[in-house]
Design a binder for these strands. Sequence first.
DNA 1: GTCTATAATCTGATAGAC
DNA 2: GTCTATCAGATTATAGAC
Lengths: 217, 217
Amino acid sequence: MTETVVDRRTLRREETRAEIVAAAWDLAREHGLAAISMRDLGARVGMRAPSVYTYFESKDAIYDAMFRQGYEQFLEWMADAAADARDADARVGVTPALARARAHAHRFFAFCTADPVRYQLLFLRTLPGFEPSAQSYALAVRALEQGADEYAAMGITDPDALDLSTALLTGLTSQQIANDPGGDRWERLLDRAAEMLLRELAPDLLTDRDHPTMRRT
Amino acid sequence: MTETVVDRRTLRREETRAEIVAAAWDLAREHGLAAISMRDLGARVGMRAPSVYTYFESKDAIYDAMFRQGYEQFLEWMADAAADARDADARVGVTPALARARAHAHRFFAFCTADPVRYQLLFLRTLPGFEPSAQSYALAVRALEQGADEYAAMGITDPDALDLSTALLTGLTSQQIANDPGGDRWERLLDRAAEMLLRELAPDLLTDRDHPTMRRT
DNA sequence: GTCTATAATCTGATAGAC
DNA sequence: GTCTATCAGATTATAGAC
């Protein structure tokens, strides 16, 4: 009986923690990532500032929870990219590898532009003084590994493939967010960028229609 | 006689303004762009906070002066890229266009990684609430036009050339600054990236050694 | 669990003496 | 031209009542 009570308490606590993190995202989107205050944050969830400290030991712990949640969302979101590629695969004149590369590019771009503040926290790392905990940072490493696996499954062995494509994709995203928010000036270039990348990394995947790039499905 | 006195005063004033802006850069590099305070800034130049307001009407005016100075430095720095290309041109197996594209990439990369805080202010625009004045923003526009002229001089007419290359170059730079500061993990990829870009935008410039790409020199 | 009260400190900006 | 003094807040975080 005592165990059940403890579990219910823990559950309730986790719910409130999640509520606080959600409110922190809202505030960050409204006023900027660095402009979150414990007062405002508390007010958003119907508390005063000191009560927030019952759930997070410091402001940095809240940023860390945001960082962690952001990468969890990223991992989940990118895992679905293969499905996109399957859908796009039916198009004429496009190899399975190109369809997959394009789908990947659009997936990544959509995730980033959907929430520029999240993009800033996860990929730009311009929040002064903040360093993610080892536990949260491990998620960022796993995201990178997931990208490497994706390339391996496509048959791309070039060791620079991941670094070159993250650079190009984050670059397109950054430019879109900073210089044409809400527009499509750089989004338009995604298909072309994906093709350029594939031509550089594995040109045979651009012509050979029977290459086993969908091994994972 | 009166005129001379006025000129000396104006000159002295401009010197102090420059001193304050230099101190602001120092503070930004040490504690982050958003963490500049008027008190600290004054202390750096041997003043109290209120005296700084004699030279700049607000904190935003100081950010604007930094933004402006950063783009002035950028314009000057990139104008010298043609000289780099001339030096690199002697290399075997490289067309003048490729030498030029590579030199441009390295120039841009060096400018950005030399001062990540400046890069953040000029290209990332993540300083919450800050908008450059029309006068300062005009410099940013001119920088972009200078890039467009560079491509035109190389004979590249593709209208997406500039957007695609700024995306790739800022991407490589961002990744280097955020994920491997002081290292060369993305710097190593610059030559390859420049070649990939040129192959996409004007493949003939990669093979035709007699193309008039050095028209400007 | 949440509160009030408060410590201790920081912030941008202004008034007015010298 | 620079200062002191100060306004009118803001900030993170803690102590202790309820």
